[in-house]
Nucleic acid binder design. Structure first.
Lengths: 338, 338
DNA sequence: CCTGCAAATGCACACGTGAAAATTTTAGAA
DNA sequence: TTCTAAAATTTTCACGTGTGCATTTGCAGG
């Protein structure tokens, strides 16, 4: 393997000069630098990252941690996050992907191993991990889940606003009995979307019906089960807001199996606008939140903080927007002003 | 930061002894070892991986490379791969995720940076990358795509067998006009599935109709467009094999938009058995290939080869199996023996 | 008490790099 | 020329770890 010493010998200078020349240190005369760079290229020199990392105390590694890779993380979510992060991240960084629930040895998550950490957080259970990272002094940005603690930089979608928009939409279509299939208990996103949903109901003077609140866990299956439950409720809702698209797909299937047509007999609204939403049958009306954008903005934020650790922590909320397709329509007998 | 020298001082031994004790070297007396381990734990010692890597010439990093993260890779594919790999991979390894098309500087992919590399390959364009890795001496396993070159370890699904199984199934249901929507040109999987499909047709004495072969690119949209094309063909096929599930979903939507009911008027068969397949409407008959299993087995293979580089390269083919759901049925007027 | 040998431990070095200190070269002024 | 200051480059050292080899320790046998 070629080292800077080999290059130094070939160029007739000291290895320090080579190091400086390759790292853009202004102390080196331009033509010396040029010559060294040329020789290095000729010799196919690749720096030894371990040695470099040892002396610079960096690792060139960014860690991306999901709450879980096995459970509750939809695959398009993972993919979009990865895309967004890569867009903002220089190729020279290694990007590792982990599930927080796979981390058995917390002390492996260490400043010497990671220059910075992105947490794609979906649940408050991540907090132990997040505070470990913070305590160990690794620059950190928490993505996707809104945090209360202002000391931790945070980029998330406006889940509450999205939930509100969904309910508003149903109301404006004329629905007065609006149900909700909630996400995984403990996931902040789930609680926030529910909250926005409630706010809208209340703002419109509707009294929430407890039988119309059903628990899911973000999986397709849970959406199916929850919808069955709603269909069997005494006063069946005419519209249902599902806290993510996966559950909306499950719900749609439940309707189909029970012979209920969507949206004629029942309107469905999802959340996330994943790729398949527009190919559902009927295409799914949903709330778009751009995980890609969250990933990208969060990464930019992290890089900034890695360079300037003193910067005050920022909380950013990216808007979520209603995407109208065909799974939600006016109810058969509009509630109107009776 | 605590180093082994600090521990050595605290324990009254040399740092060499500490190093040996912590690494399980048998030269150390059991009670000495025990004492040192205890002290290390008390002092919250975490090894400096950069230093360790420098001296052992390892990086503790496994690179996972997809053909592309942006295009042609379905998200569930990425996720399943990740799950499978993590199942087989010790927590002490860092696992990085990259798109081959994002790699601008090939020389960054270097033995010093990666102890081993997994390539989730989908196209022959990856070959340049694969041979670079091979040439640079990094232990390597290529996943998902069948390779011709026996010198490179390979784990893939039996794409051809899957294509054959799909066509066989359509034939057995009574279809005689069977179309195919092909995958992305240049992707080996696409060519193999097509080949299996052809083999089946020929084995059953059917003459392939060129108008029934339509190009797609594995995207939902392309499936939609291709199906429109098939529906407008002079002799419309009564069954269509889509080279992946995404395209089958697109095709299903095209049928729906044109008022063609599936499976009554037209049968559809997909490939991959992704999560949404069973929630399509109707649920999609498809070919299951376990990306998770491919990932897991491939990782095991890679770890073996990292330990014993001399081992002969292995090619493994994991079977693909037909999953019968409801999108494919007997045609209205069975072709029978006329 | 010495010898011999095995077990246990320590020493010194290497890895490739970057930073501080030391040295040489260059340029300019006297 | 000679001196001085600045610029350019080299020398030296440190980073934290693992390993070959040397050294010490412990113990049994004579």
């Amino acid at each position: 393997m070629i080292t800077i010493k080999d290059i130094a010998r070939a160029a007739g200078v000291s290895h320090t000069t080579v190091s400086r020349a390759l790292n853009g240190n202004p102390l080196i005369k331009p033509d010396t630098r040029e010559r060294i760079v040329r020789i290095a290229a000729e010799m196919n020199y690749v720096p030894n990252y371990s040695a470099k990392n040892l002396v610079t105390q960096k690792s060139n590694t960014i860690g991306l941690f999901f709450s879980s890779i096995d459970q509750g993380t939809s695959s398009s979510f993972l993919m979009d996050a990865l895309k967004g992060i890569r867009q903002a991240l220089d190729e020279s960084y290694l990007l590792t992907v982990n599930g927080i629930d796979d981390v058995l040895h917390l002390d492996r998550v260490h400043p010497r191993r990671y220059d910075g950490i992105l947490v794609m957080s979906q649940t408050e259970h991540d907090n132990a991990f997040i505070y470990h990272v913070k305590a160990s002094g690794i620059p950190l940005v928490v993505l996707n889940r809104q945090l209360d603690d202002p000391s931790i930089p945070n980029v998330a979608a406006d889940d509450r606003g999205g939930g509100r928009a969904a309910a508003d939409h149903a109301y404006e279509l004329g629905h007065r009995q609006i149900g909700i299939i909630e996400g995984r208990p403990g996931f902040k996103s789930s609680a926030e979307r529910r909250l926005g949903f409630m706010e809208s109901l209340i703002a419109h003077g509707l009294t929430p019906n407890p039988a119309h609140f059903v628990q899911g866990d973000y999986s397709i299956e849970s959406g199916y089960a929850a919808m069955i439950q709603l269909l069997e409720a005494p006063e069946r809702p005419s519209a249902v807001f599902c806290c993510n698209d996966d559950m909306a797909i499950g719900a749609m299937n439940a309707c189909f199996d029970r012979g209920i047509s969507v949206p004629e007999e029942l309107s469905l609204i999802g959340f996330d606008d994943m790729v398949f939403a527009r190919y559902a049958n009927p295409p799914l009306t949903t709330i778009r939140k751009s995980v890609l954008e969250i990933g990208r903005e969060g990464t930019k934020l992290l890089l900034e903080r890695m360079e300037h650790p003193q910067l005050a922590p920022v909380h950013r909320h990216l808007g979520s927007e209603l995407v109208v397709r065909r799974s939600a329509a006016a109810p058969r007998q509009p509630a109107g002003e009776i």
